[in-house]
Simulated assay, not measured.
Amino acid sequence: MRNVFQYNDRLGIELPELDREWGQYSEAERAEMLVYWEQIRGRIPDRIMSLEQVIIRKQLQLNVEDDFPLSCALNREIAELASCITDLHIWYRVNQEFSSRMHS
Rank of each mutant, 00 (worst) to 15 (best):
M1E: 04
M1L: 04
M1K: 09
R2F: 03
V4S: 01
Q6W: 00
Y7M: 02
D9H: 10
R10N: 09
R10T: 14
L11W: 08
L11E: 06
G12T: 11
L15N: 02
P16K: 07
R20H: 06
R20C: 05
W22S: 02
W22R: 03
G23T: 15
Q24L: 12
Y25L: 04
Y25H: 05
S26N: 07
E27R: 13
E29I: 09
E29S: 11
A31Q: 07
E32N: 08
V35Y: 01
E38Q: 15
Q39D: 09
Q39Y: 06
Q39T: 10
I40G: 01
R41S: 06
G42S: 13
G42R: 07
G42H: 04
R43C: 06
R43G: 09
I44A: 00
I44W: 01
R47K: 15
R47F: 01
I48P: 05
S50V: 08
S50T: 12
S50N: 11
L51A: 05
E52G: 06
Q53E: 15
V54M: 02
V54G: 00
V54Q: 09
I55P: 01
R57P: 00
R57H: 06
Q59K: 14
L60S: 10
L62P: 00
L62E: 10
N63G: 09
V64W: 05
D66F: 03
D66M: 11
D66A: 13
D67H: 13
D67N: 15
D67E: 02
F68G: 00
P69W: 04
P69A: 07
S71K: 14
A73Y: 08
L74R: 10
N75M: 10
N75E: 14
R76I: 15
R76E: 14
E77D: 15
E77C: 01
E77A: 13
I78R: 03
I78P: 00
I78D: 05
I78N: 04
A79H: 12
A82I: 01
A82S: 12
S83E: 15
T86R: 11
T86A: 12
T86L: 09
T86N: 13
T86V: 11
L88V: 12
I90E: 11
I90Y: 12
V94F: 08
N95E: 07
N95T: 03
E97C: 01
E97I: 14
S99C: 03
S99H: 07
S99G: 00
S100Y: 12
R101F: 08
S104C: 02
